[in-house]
Structures are given as structure tokens and as C-alpha cells.
């Protein structure tokens, strides 16, 4: 892996440069999605029938051009922060990388199957935490034996048993922080080629954040690529050495985290 410090004195360290292996290539990607404005349009049955007869699309659907021509390449072993104001297209970009949203134009190429870890990654709320761990691990393609081996590790990492035996209680009894922690622990239990984290670290308490940042570092060292969307600049600074700043669906800046965050702060304060 080559980072900026090494590339600055590139003439000295030239023989040591290894070939960098790209894991995500985003080539001029545009993402357009349709939003349902809900009850904003005329939703009466008569109006709906009229639309069906005249074959016009519902007026409460609006197209949003969320990502406009983003291009970058991510390499193995990198942790990349994605920052930007609300609605700048960060989460949309992650979903396009995960293959959950189609690109309108351009292309997204990935190595293996990226895993998206979001805050709304719901499992079965009526089932105990343990069962959810089993299900989640099987859903990630682990074998039953592997799941049995990892189950205690995952429960311990999530720390949900710190206040008594919560692992055997249904997940609907968990606080939002607890279930977010359990979900992160499940997703982090597997070795991902590409892990996309969408604000999932924000809900945990301080001790858990420390632990999860450590886990993200581990995942990176074992040759994965991690993307982190966060509004907490401190956690981006702690985990990522490269940061992409998105604004209105376009890349405003892409470079070392410290530089990008400084520019972003100036932008946010100057607004």
C-alpha cells in the first residue's frame, strides 16, 4: 500500500512500491432515483383512476439526480471517508457501490460483493439477539459450524450482555444503540473485500466506538477496503487516511483526510 507520505519521496522509495490492487472503480457514475412524495400529490381514487386511463405517471413521483458523474478508484487496504452536507449523495453513492441502486450512466466495478452496513439494516425484531446473529451470519454465507464458533465472539464484541443477559431477549426490547451495535458486530464478523459503513458507528457509546474503530482498522489490514460515511469528522479522522468530499452529488475534493477535512470545515463555517 502506498500512502501520501511515501509518494512524496517517491524517488527514494521507488523499489519498494508494490502494485496497488483496485477494489472499487467508479467511472463517471450518475445515479437517478425516483422519490415518492407520499400524499403530496392528488391521491384520491378518482385522480388515480384518471391517471390510469390517460396513462400518465403519478404526479407524486419525482426524479432526483443524486450522484452526478463521480469517478474515483479505491485500492486494497484503504479506508476512505465520505463527507459532505446532508443530501449530498453520500449514502446513495454507497448503495450504488453495493449494487443496490442501478447507475443511470457510467459504471461501478467492484471486487467480490461489497457489504453495506447501514443503520436501518433490520433483522427479525421478534427474535432474540442470538438467533439474529445466527441468521445474519448465515445470510452472509457462513457455514453453520463457522456460525457456532463465532457466536460467542460476536455477542461479546457487541457488548449487549453488559447489562445482564440481553442476547436471549427479543431484539425489539433493545435500545437503538444496542441493536445498532449488534448489527455492526454481525457485519464485522466476516472478512469483507469491501465494507461500506453508513453512519453505523455513530449510535454506539464511546467505548463501543473505540472498539469498532479498532475492528475497522483490522479489517483494513487484512486487505479489505472500507468506506465510512459519517458526520462525525473525528471518527473519519481516526479511521481513514483518504477522504472524499461530496457536495450536490459531485466530488468537491479527494485526498488526504486532514486536507479535505480542513477545506470542508472552512466551507461549512463560511456558509
Amino acid at each position: 500500500m502506498v500512502n501520501l507520505e511515501m509518494s512524496n519521496d517517491v524517488t527514494v522509495t521507488l523499489p519498494r512500491i508494490q502494485e496497488r490492487i483496485p477494489t472499487v472503480v467508479v467511472d463517471d457514475a450518475h445515479v437517478v432515483y425516483r422519490v415518492y412524495k407520499g400524499a403530496a400529490g392528488n391521491t384520491s381514487p378518482v385522480a388515480a383512476f384518471k391517471r390510469m386511463v390517460t396513462r400518465t405517471s403519478a404526479p407524486n413521483v419525482r426524479e432526483v439526480h443524486a450522484v452526478r458523474g463521480v469517478s474515483f478508484t479505491a485500492y486494497r487496504g484503504e479506508a476512505i471517508g465520505l463527507i459532505g452536507s446532508n443530501g449530498s449523495g453520500k449514502s446513495t453513492l454507497l448503495r450504488a457501490i453495493a449494487g443496490l441502486l442501478p447507475v443511470e450512466r457510467g459504471a461501478v466495478y467492484t471486487q467480490g460483493q461489497p457489504s453495506l452496513l447501514g443503520v436501518n439494516a433490520a433483522l427479525l425484531n421478534d427474535l432474540p439477539g442470538e438467533r439474529n446473529v445466527t441468521l445474519g451470519c448465515l445470510a452472509m454465507g457462513m457455514s453453520p459450524a463457522e456460525v457456532r464458533r463465532k457466536l460467542p465472539e460476536i455477542i461479546a464484541f457487541s457488548g449487549i450482555n453488559q447489562r445482564g443477559d440481553f442476547a436471549s431477549l427479543p431484539m425489539r426490547t433493545y435500545s437503538s444503540g444496542m441493536s445498532a451495535r449488534l448489527r455492526f458486530s454481525i457485519a464485522a464478523a466476516k472478512q469483507h473485500d469491501v465494507l461500506l459503513i453508513d453512519e453505523a458507528l455513530a449510535t454506539g457509546d464511546k467505548a463501543f466506538r473505540k472498539r469498532s474503530e479498532g475492528r475497522v482498522r483490522e479489517l483494513r489490514e487484512s486487505a479489505g477496503t472500507v468506506f465510512l460515511v459519517s458526520h462525525q469528522l473525528s471518527s473519519v479522522r481516526d479511521t481513514c487516511e483518504r477522504t472524499i468530499w461530496l457536495e450536490s452529488g459531485e466530488i468537491r475534493m479527494d485526498g488526504p483526510t486532514d486536507d479535505v477535512i480542513r477545506a470542508y470545515n472552512e466551507f461549512a463555517n463560511g456558509k
Partner: peptide, 21 residues
């Protein structure tokens, strides 16, 4: 690096990346 000068699509093909989704 040996990848310079390649278009993103060629780079992806060279390293065996697949179109997402």
C-alpha cells in the same frame, strides 16, 4: 504504476472487477 494510462473500464477488467449488482 503499471495501471496508469488505462481507462477505468480497462483497469477494472485488468484486475477482474465486476459490474456492481
Amino acid at each position: 504504476d503499471p495501471d496508469s494510462g488505462l481507462t477505468p473500464a480497462q483497469l477494472a477488467a485488468r484486475h477482474g472487477l465486476r459490474v456492481a449488482g
